[in-house]
Design a binder for these strands. Structure first.
Length: 698
DNA sequence: AAGCTTAGACTTTTT
DNA sequence: GTCTAAGCTT
């Protein structure tokens, strides 16, 4: 390193700006720049701080910002990291770092190099969302396998399996012959799905990474450009990466992993196994990327010792950990309690009351979060909060860009961006209705095929007035966009298509809401425009193509779909989210509800349960709390409008038997106080029920 | 082709 | 209970 000052400059020992870091953090930040590093960072141990300081350390040492790639798992994390780096090295340098999620980096890559896989107009490409991908598969099934009963062979199920294969890195020809007829049918569908996708120039989520890998594999000259220019690759939340993402990283770091790679993660917080992530990925990194340094961050700055004791005790039940134990210097106790309610209504009411009291005591709403295992559980709390006039914000669930009216509007925008987008065409032409249905489209399709032209060209020769006006609107909007930009385009689109009036009359009670959402879309476009202006490029990337605003906006609507469209501002509301969404976040007051065994851990109807992953999920939930943690469960929880009893026999103190989550029972009794007695009463039935270490357990 | 009615699914987590 | 898709009617 010393004899190569140009590329790596001088890295001094413990500069003053690193003085506030603890020894382990400082060691991680200042690891030799020419070796790989794996940072095992427990919850609340300053993981992001280490990552951002490592980047700043490199830049201050003379590394060019654009020689650094940093990959995160969510857009939110990318944004936060960028802001924090900006504070360390300034906006300009921070803006040059190639930072983004795997998917946004993959998209940027394909926008530049997609022509290698036959992607036309690749520079403005955008992926389909999941609904569209499933719809495409359904169409394939109908066209190619018309005898299939779609109620038996559900498109969604097949899409799920195909996605799993793709996340594992299996291309069509890599999937082995399956054991069951149904699985082999999926295998056939995979090929047909890929063919149709290619024909219609569409991409699904997995393609963003998988197809990028394909290009990098088969075009070493492209890959070479990256590892020649890159000096450092960093991966956040490395425990959640799946095989195709690991391969993507491998392509960037080059043959023999010549580019120093710095991964940060926590095997105890690996909660995306269902998406192909392998909790053992940290271990295999240590084997494959050598030489390397492993640094453990175990001092926790977030939680009280009570909460840490509980979290450590629960996670200790997982075998196969790299192993670490969080500790804190904090002496304050906060509060930690469990409540058991009769039903979900009582639970929601009690939580909402408690939140109201906290707010009355002057606690800012932004300090409070309600966490749950699955989105559906937000409903009860929502109701209770609305009843008490408490402002809240739901993260995740059905998001803004997935609403029907918004998707219709986006279809118009997509058509303006690319008239050859057939899916957008079908959607836009029916919103509002203009006398075109399945039959007409079939005719057009055959006509297009016969003449060897695009569907869009066929529309031009149609003499019907409604079709002509449709075509005219698209052309007119294109001119509007080119002359006046994105925001005016969205406004004019609503005006010319009369979508708002259409929904007000057609959607009845929901009409007003639809119209409001469409107005919200104008605002979202304005915000997006503003952000792009402010930051130069929204998604910094490997392939920094300038890209036009419309195609960036459309891609953002798919890749970053949970942002935007929320009327209440962040910071003024209580937060509601799933535990998955909460990873990486922290709140002084955390409510964790729905802690019934079978719900959390989730046990499927077939009896399957990935107990270790569920336990990690519980560990993530508990360690979000900076001060207070309120756990709760109910004896009866309704689902689908029906009441289901939790247990059929009763313990002597009137409680149903096995309903409290086994994870709660793994918490040392002395930490739970009064509630421990109740838990113990319900735990007798559970003794010995845990058989296997993971996977199926009964 | 559009609008209405009904049947069935959804409920694990997300880019 | 709520939402969507398929089926039936106009």
């Amino acid at each position: 390193m010393p004899d190569n000052p140009g590329a790596q400059a001088t890295f001094y020992e413990e500069p003053a700006w690193l003085a506030h870091l603890n020894p382990a953090q400082r060691e991680a930040v200042t690891l030799p720049m020419d070796s790989h590093g794996a940072i095992l960072a427990g919850a609340g141990t300053g993981k992001t701080n280490v990552l951002t300081h490592r980047i700043a350390y490199a830049i201050r040492g003379g590394m060019e910002p654009y020689a650094i790639v940093a990959v995160t798992f969510t857009n939110k994390a990318a944004k936060e990291i960028k802001e924090r780096i900006a504070r360390l090295v300034g906006e300009e340098a921070a803006g040059k770092i190639r930072l983004g999620t795997f998917h946004s980096l993959g998209l940027k890559f394909l926008r530049k190099f997609g022509h290698h896989i036959g992607l036309e107009r690749c520079e403005t490409a955008a992926p389909m969302d999941e609904d569209e991908a499933v719809a495409l598969l359904r169409r394939v099934m109908k066209d190619r396998f018309p005898d299939t009963d779609l109620k038996v062979e559900k498109p969604k199920d097949h899409y799920f399996v195909i996605s799993q294969w793709k996340e594992q890195g299996l291309y069509v020809n890599d999937v082995p012959v399956q054991k069951t007829a149904s699985a082999n049918f999926t295998r056939m569908l995979y090929a047909a799905y890929e063919a149709e996708k290619k024909r219609s120039q569409a991409l699904d989520f997995a393609d963003l990474v998988l197809q990028s890998n394909f290009v990098l594999r088969h075009h070493p000259e492209v890959a070479a450009v990256f590892h020649q220019h890159l000096r450092m690759v960093l991966v956040d939340e490395f425990q959640d990466t799946n095989p195709i993402q690991v391969e993507f990283i491998g392509h960037l770091t080059g043959t023999g992993h010549s580019v120093p790679t710095f991964v940060v993660g926590d095997d105890d917080q690996s909660i995306y196994g269902w998406r192909g992530a392998d909790a053992g990925i940290m271990q295999s990194f240590l084997k494959r990327y050598t030489p390397n340094h492993l640094v453990r961050l175990e001092q926790n700055y977030r939680c009280t010792s009570t909460i840490l004791d509980a979290a450590n005790a629960v996670i200790a039940n997982n075998p196969n950990r790299i192993g670490k134990r969080l500790w804190t210097e904090r002496q304050d106790v906060g509060s930690f309690q469990l409540d058991i309610f009769a039903d979900a209504e009582a639970e929601a009411g009690a939580i909402a009351d408690r939140i109201r009291n906290l707010l009355a005591d002057g606690i800012p709403p932004a300090d409070i979060v309600v966490l749950y295992r699955k989105n559906m559980l937000s409903r009860g709390i929502e109701k209770a909060l609305v009843f008490r006039d408490i402002p809240y914000r739901i993260y995740g669930g059905l998001n803004f860009f997935q609403r029907r009216e918004i998707k219709d509007a986006l279809a118009w925008l997509r058509l303006v961006q690319n008239p050859l987008d057939e899916m957008a065409l079908f959607r836009a032409i029916a919103a509002p209705r203009r006398g075109v249905g399945a039959k007409t489209i079939e005719q057009w399709k055959t006509m297009a095929q016969k003449q060897g032209v695009a569907l869009w060209d066929v529309l031009h020769s149609d003499k019907k007035a409604s079709i002509q006006s449709f075509v005219q609107i698209v052309h007119r909007l294109r001119q509007v966009y080119e002359a006046e930009g994105l925001v005016v385009l969205v406004k004019k689109m609503l005006a010319l298509t009369k979508l708002e009036q259409y929904y007000i009359t057609a959607a009845k009670e929901r009409g007003e809401e639809c119209a409001e959402n469409l107005q919200e879309l104008v605002i979202a476009a304005g915000v997006f425009h503003h952000e792009m202006r402010a930051t130069g490029l929204h998604m910094e990337s490997l392939a920094r193509t300038p890209g036009d605003l419309l195609s960036e906006f459309l891609a953002d609507a798919v890749l970053n779909s949970d942002q935007g469209g929320q009327k209440k501002k962040e910071g003024e509301t209580v937060s509601l989210m799933t535990v998955h969404k909460a990873k990486g976040l922290e709140f002084p007051y955390v409510f964790l509800l729905g802690l019934e065994d079978g719900e959390f851990p989730k046990i499927t109807q077939s009896g399957f349960c990935n107990l270790e992953e569920e336990r990690r999920l519980f560990y993530v939930a508990v360690t979000r709390s900076k001060f207070s943690l309120f756990l709760s469960c109910v004896r009866n929880r309704q689902s689908f409008g029906y009441t289901q009893d939790a247990g059929d026999d009763e313990a002597e103190d009137g409680l149903d038997s096995h309903f409290v989550s086994r994870f709660v029972q793994e918490i040392p009794a002395h930490l739970l106080g009064d509630a421990a007695r109740l838990v113990q009463a319900s735990s007798r039935k559970l003794v010995g029920s845990e058989t296997g270490s993971d996977g199926d357990w009964w």
